[in-house]
Write a protein that binds this DNA or RNA. Structure first.
Lengths: 197, 197
DNA sequence: GGAGGGATGCGGCGTTTTGTCGCAGGCCGG
DNA sequence: CCGGCCTGCGACAAAACGCCGCATCCCTCC
């Protein structure tokens, strides 16, 4: 089982599903999908689509175990919710989710109090895993660098997601030809993310 | 010309060079090179090549402003120095340097108290920048995803570094043919890292 | 000192991928 | 209804890649 990390979560599911969770995600479809997926795991999800709404929602909640914040919210930045959130619920486990993540962004999020940092696409299992695992121990860190193909593919997925699936613009952002992106996308239908709903 | 962020540090150099710095780097050549490069910036560098030596060195130092820790030290892990280091010098600015970095590793390092997380190759300017900048503010975060070519190139450099420049093994780790890696490396002599000494 | 293993650089050649056209179709606002 | 934008796809040349082989160099071990 060297690098069988095609899916993030290990076999043992820590089963520490938070009872109350705040989800900050501006995309309607993905937000609803994530909300339902988490709800299926027995978690009550309070969903906000923008920073202001999340702040208001925060004030109304009597308790909060976890929070999943999308970093990229148009003009807002999900990281700005971390401080008020932790001020009200210091024990709340916060993870940040982003379309495409960089190491610098991950450091920024962590320094602000985030527990973990995930890049899309992340399904409910990934999220629950990130909430349950303590990222401080580096035993679970990948020691082998990902293959070039894998790296490329994940990056393509992130950029594509960041551009709302627009192939033309994603190809332009990636610096490759639109035709090439088309061909590459067709070769690999969808490696993970098979979660039926 | 669009994404001209070939070099990380912005034009403004914050010039807060630490007076006393601990460098933990197991590679002799790179360690010496880094030590000299930092010393040229007016910084007294205490260099250790393994974790035990670093601990001993730590006990002898009267003061410490900053630390640069290589994460990958053969059997040891540079992250394990963070805790004792901060216990003795709570104000010390610690950054972690690694051959190939992942977001998970960056999160782990940050949660353990590191101020920033860099991937090789990082020259003295990168290191001083990372020490000076506060990674909490995300204003300086890259908003545009790197091009595929750039991503590939940097990853190749990291993997190559992680394998001590061994082209055959790096190619194997990358999942590409050795001949292909050779050809790619020849096309781009060395984008950064021109710092002559 | 010679055999062996491993890493490197490089030429060549067939195969695969990419870049770059072009064209048809779908969707939407003026 | 037209123009703009995005998509899917065919075709073809150019580039890149996989894969062979070979010569060289360095190191270790016997």
């Amino acid at each position: 089982m060297e690098n069988a990390d095609t899916n993030g979560h290990s076999g043992d599911r820590p089963m520490t599903v938070p009872a109350s969770l705040l989800l900050l995600e501006d995309d309607d479809i993905l937000g609803r999908q994530t909300q339902r997926a988490l709800a299926r795991h027995g978690c009550q999800v309070h969903w906000a689509t923008d920073l202001a709404a999340a702040r208001r929602l925060l004030a109304t909640l009597p308790a909060l175990d976890a929070a999943v914040l999308d970093q990229n919210l148009g003009a807002d930045n999900g990281l700005d919710l971390i401080a008020p959130l932790l001020a009200r619920f210091p024990e709340c486990r916060v993870i940040v989710l982003t379309g495409y993540g960089s190491i610098a962004a991950a450091v920024a999020a962590t320094r602000r109090g985030a527990r973990n940092y995930l890049t899309k696409p992340a399904d409910a299992n990934d999220i629950l895993d990130a909430l349950a695992r303590d990222p401080g121990d580096l035993e679970a860190l990948p020691d082998a660098p990902p293959s070039l193909q894998r790296l490329e593919w994940e990056h393509i997925q992130r950029v594509l997601d960041a551009h709302q699936g627009n192939i033309s613009r994603a190809a332009d952002a990636l610096g490759i030809h639109r035709r090439t992106l088309q061909r590459r996308l067709k070769k690999r239908p969808s490696p993970k993310h098979f979660e039926r709903d």
